[in-house]
């Protein structure tokens, strides 16, 4: 039972939490605000808070100058593609390890996690070489495959922990009830696993969307996603804060919204089920 707390204490805690929360959120808020300013207002001294002439000009300039939508499409294709491909491989794998554990299951799981610890930079050149050899450099398919492999251990671990929570009793009950493996999967397993699969999917789209080693090193123009789009703003050319802000806002907005929706499932997803 939670106890009643004095109002005074609640006020202090609330104030502290809100101040810290707003401070942490401030850079994002500032970026969004700046994206609606003119370049002059963006670097005005002293800084302008809300009292400026709101404009959408930056957004159209960014779209015209660097074709935001093409990068956006690339991001969507790569993030969704790698996640779906990863799920196709991971679901059977996680299913088998969760429901038919053998003596080696734990070792296999740990080994899979260990592949995630391989520093990407250690295999950078071979991957570039293979990509060029197969004529896949700067293509969607290459990034889909590479990001899928990058995140596969996480996907498997997440699904494993979700599947592990489905009581074996229920699957046995289904078997006793005369369900074939197929109907067991369709009528019992899938509906029960769906929330877990959905949050796995969401988290991996986020991870793939924000991945910035392979996407920067394996693309030039054709398949470059938003990470590369933003990186192209790293060398300042004159007045550009407002446009940088507009580009940044557009790059993070979709995933920020998804992330807020998925925050409940996030924890166990990211901790491989070790924290619930």
């Amino acid at each position: 039972m939670a106890r009643a707390v004095t109002t005074q204490r609640k006020i202090v805690a609330t104030a502290a939490a809100w101040i810290i929360g707003l401070a942490i959120f401030f850079p994002i808020l500032w970026t969004v605000l700046t994206s609606f300013k003119t370049e002059a207002q963006a670097i005005a001294d002293p800084p302008v808070w809300f009292g400026f002439d709101w404009t959408l000009e930056n957004y159209s300039v960014v779209q015209e100058r660097s074709n935001y939508f093409r990068f956006l499409m690339n991001s969507v294709i790569i993030a969704v593609g790698s996640t779906v491909l990863g799920l196709l491989i991971a679901i059977p794998s996680a299913w088998s390890m969760a429901f038919v554990p053998g003596k080696r299951t734990k070792d296999v799981l740990m080994w899979m996690l260990s592949t995630k610890m391989l520093p990407a930079v250690g295999v950078l050149f071979p991957i570039v070489l293979i990509a060029r050899f197969l004529d896949l450099y700067d293509t969607h398919i290459l990034l889909i495959v590479v990001l899928m492999l990058m995140n596969l251990p996480i996907i498997i671990w997440m699904l494993y922990t979700y599947f592990k929570e489905i009581p074996v009793d229920i699957l046995e009950a289904a078997r006793m009830d005369g369900a074939s493996l197929r109907s067991e999967i369709i009528y019992v397993l899938t509906p029960m696993a769906l929330p877990g699969i959905a949050s796995t999917m969401l988290l991996n789209i986020i991870l793939a969307w924000n991945e910035a080693f392979w996407t920067l090193n394996l693309t030039t123009t054709k398949a470059a996603p938003l990470t590369a789009f933003i990186a192209s703003y790293s060398s300042p050319e004159g007045l550009f804060y407002a446009k940088l802000s507009a580009a940044s806002t557009m790059a993070i907005a979709p995933i920020l919204i998804m992330g807020w929706f998925s925050q409940k499932q996030l924890v166990r997803g990211l901790t491989f089920g070790a924290v619930k």
Partner: peptide
Amino acid sequence: IVRILVIAPFFVMPTVSALVWKNM
């Protein structure tokens, strides 16, 4: 709401957060 505010930076892609901090 505070939770949402606190969690937000995690969803910002690394290139964006680096550039925003660096410049702004």
